[in-house]
Computed example of a mutant assay.
Amino acid sequence: MHTVVRSFSGKGAKELFDLLEKNKPDVEKTLRSVKGLVSYTLVRSADGGFSVTVCNDKAGTDESIQKARDWIAKNAASTGVAAPKVTEGSVVLHVK
């Protein structure tokens, strides 16, 4: 499995997470369409938030990054949020 964490902070990050929360059904639909999706978690933090996406392979996390980027461009460009800090890697342990 492969995981990607996308962290948003600074200008527009709180506004982005307000929009994501208001549009949870659409966000969920978008992420559920990712091939090989294992799990997706969206977390609000003090300075914005982050997402954690786990997929069967790197191709899935790459697809999730693109779908998230497209969703933000289409629905949240007005927030002015900067590109996220992206951290990714192979899963060592996944507990359900």
Rank of each mutant, 00 (worst) to 15 (best):
27 V>K: 06
46 A>W: 11
89 G>N: 08
63 E>H: 01
81 V>R: 04
16 L>F: 04
42 L>I: 13
78 S>G: 06
17 F>D: 09
9 S>W: 01
56 N>W: 04
16 L>A: 00
4 V>M: 11
17 F>Q: 06
79 T>P: 02
41 T>H: 11
92 V>D: 07
37 L>G: 00
72 I>F: 08
29 K>L: 09
96 K>M: 10
96 K>R: 12
10 G>T: 08
74 K>E: 07
95 V>R: 05
37 L>V: 08
21 E>P: 00
5 V>N: 13
6 R>N: 11
95 V>M: 03
38 V>P: 01
73 A>R: 15
5 V>Q: 14
90 S>W: 08
81 V>G: 06
16 L>K: 02
82 A>S: 15
53 T>I: 15
19 L>Y: 12
32 R>A: 05
53 T>E: 05
39 S>R: 13
2 H>W: 15
53 T>Y: 03
44 R>M: 05
21 E>D: 07
67 K>Y: 10
29 K>Q: 08
52 V>N: 03
90 S>V: 10
24 K>R: 14
91 V>N: 14
67 K>V: 15
20 L>K: 05
50 F>K: 02
30 T>I: 09
54 V>M: 06
95 V>E: 03
72 I>W: 07
53 T>D: 01
20 L>I: 13
92 V>H: 11
66 Q>K: 15
19 L>G: 04
23 N>L: 05
73 A>W: 05
41 T>P: 00
16 L>D: 04
88 E>T: 05
83 A>R: 15
59 A>R: 03
80 G>D: 02
44 R>L: 07
59 A>W: 01
42 L>S: 09
8 F>R: 00
68 A>F: 13
96 K>Q: 11
31 L>Q: 13
66 Q>L: 13
44 R>G: 03
94 H>R: 10
24 K>S: 08
83 A>S: 14
40 Y>Q: 00
7 S>H: 12
71 W>Y: 12
77 A>M: 08
5 V>E: 12
1 M>G: 02
88 E>M: 09
72 I>Y: 06
36 G>I: 09
80 G>Y: 01
13 A>Q: 10
89 G>T: 08
31 L>G: 00
75 N>P: 07
70 D>F: 05
21 E>V: 02
69 R>Y: 14
89 G>M: 07
68 A>V: 06
90 S>H: 09
38 V>H: 09
52 V>E: 00
32 R>W: 06
62 D>F: 06
94 H>C: 01
79 T>D: 04
93 L>E: 08
64 S>W: 04
95 V>Y: 02
74 K>V: 12
56 N>F: 03
72 I>M: 12
55 C>W: 06
78 S>K: 13
7 S>Q: 06
55 C>T: 09
12 G>P: 02
74 K>A: 15
93 L>G: 04
60 G>N: 01
65 I>T: 12
10 G>N: 09
47 D>V: 13
1 M>E: 02
6 R>E: 10
63 E>D: 07
78 S>W: 01
58 K>D: 12
60 G>V: 02
7 S>N: 04
31 L>T: 02
13 A>L: 04
42 L>D: 00
